[in-house]
């Protein structure tokens, strides 16, 4: 049996990409019903110190005894130490997560996906367009841009929610409304409370409130299909280049590492080739939106 020893080379042992790291739920913010912000901190100091991600990437979240689900990262890479995940109660894993108290442990592996091409976007104007829950992944990009403000030209956010109570990160975004050097445009479809002081109207109506130079602007759009439909039409009307319109897709990224096949769209894997695709990619891939 000596031969076996010869054939195994322990130095070639690769890191197991399927193995989650333990993380503690530090705080839970009940932002809107069925959409909480979970703040997590890795238990292993080594993992905590070495964690790096890009805006637009996602992680696989394990609730022990239930399973795994892909979740986009809401915190910016510029804010280290705490990983923030804005999670909708939608399936088995997220329902189990909602039952966990503060200080409970979960598993996290990642980050996965391409994320936004921030190096390429730097030096340009940035237009972030979020519809509904689309703010969750875009908040990472927003804070990345605000924390690296000198690297971008104008920075504009257009965010639309159905009504004020449905707006993710509402207080945080309202506090940014008066910040210099940042054009924060918030809108709601309707305001049943009568207390909303920002714009009221559908998301595309915000295009009237800002001007853009499409030759030097990247647009990042995330939202439900209806948002893509109307926002893309506006952007194309303004002559945005199709490869400067970035969008993030939601699929069932089960493994996160380009193997299991569940997140395939056309013949690309959302977890490896995406989740951020340009509009040009999108129109060239069947089944994308």
């Amino acid at each position: 049996m000596e031969l076996q020893a010869v054939h195994q080379n322990p130095s070639e042992k690769t890191e197991n990409p399927y193995l989650p790291h333990m993380a503690r739920i530090v705080r839970i913010h009940r932002m809107v019903p069925d959409n909480y912000l979970f703040q997590l901190r890795f238990v292993d100091d080594n993992v905590l110190q070495n964690w790096e991600h890009r805006p637009g990437q996602f992680v696989e979240l394990s609730v022990i005894g239930t399973g795994e689900a892909p979740i986009s990262i809401s915190s910016a890479p510029t804010r280290k130490g705490i990983l923030e995940l804005c999670i909708r109660r939608a399936g088995r894993v997220t329902s189990a997560l909602y039952k966990l108290p503060t200080n409970a442990m979960v598993g996290i592996r990642g980050p996965y996906g391409n994320g936004f091409p921030v190096e390429e976007m730097e030096g340009n104007d940035l237009l972030i367009i979020a519809g509904g829950l689309g703010m969750a992944p875009l908040r990472s990009l927003l804070w990345y841009a605000l924390d690296n403000r000198e690297k971008f030209g104008t920075v504009t956010l257009m965010y639309g929610a159905r009504n004020p109570a449905d707006m993710l990160f509402r207080e945080e975004l309202l506090s940014l409304a008066d910040v210099e050097d940042f054009n924060c445009l918030l809108t709601v479809d309707r305001d049943p409370t009568g207390t909303w002081k920002q714009h009221v109207g559908l998301l595309p109506t915000l295009f009237k409130k800002a001007t853009f130079d499409p030759s030097r602007t990247y647009a990042a759009v995330v939202g439900p299909p209806i948002v893509y439909k109307f926002v893309l039409a506006e952007l194309l009307k303004l002559n945005f280049r199709k490869d400067r319109i970035l969008m993030s897709l939601e699929r069932r990224m089960k493994c996160g590492v380009g193997k299991c096949g569940h997140c395939s769209v056309g013949y690309k894997y959302t977890c490896i080739h995406g989740p951020v695709f340009t509009y040009w990619d999108a129109i060239n891939l069947p089944e994308i939106v």
């Binding site: 070639e12 042992k13 690769t14 197991n16 399927y18 590492v257 380009g258």
Partner: peptide
Amino acid sequence: VFAQSKYPDPYYIARRKN
């Protein structure tokens, strides 16, 4: 897909090598 890709799969690789 399982060995020469960005995230090598250790289970597949272990079997393949052995």
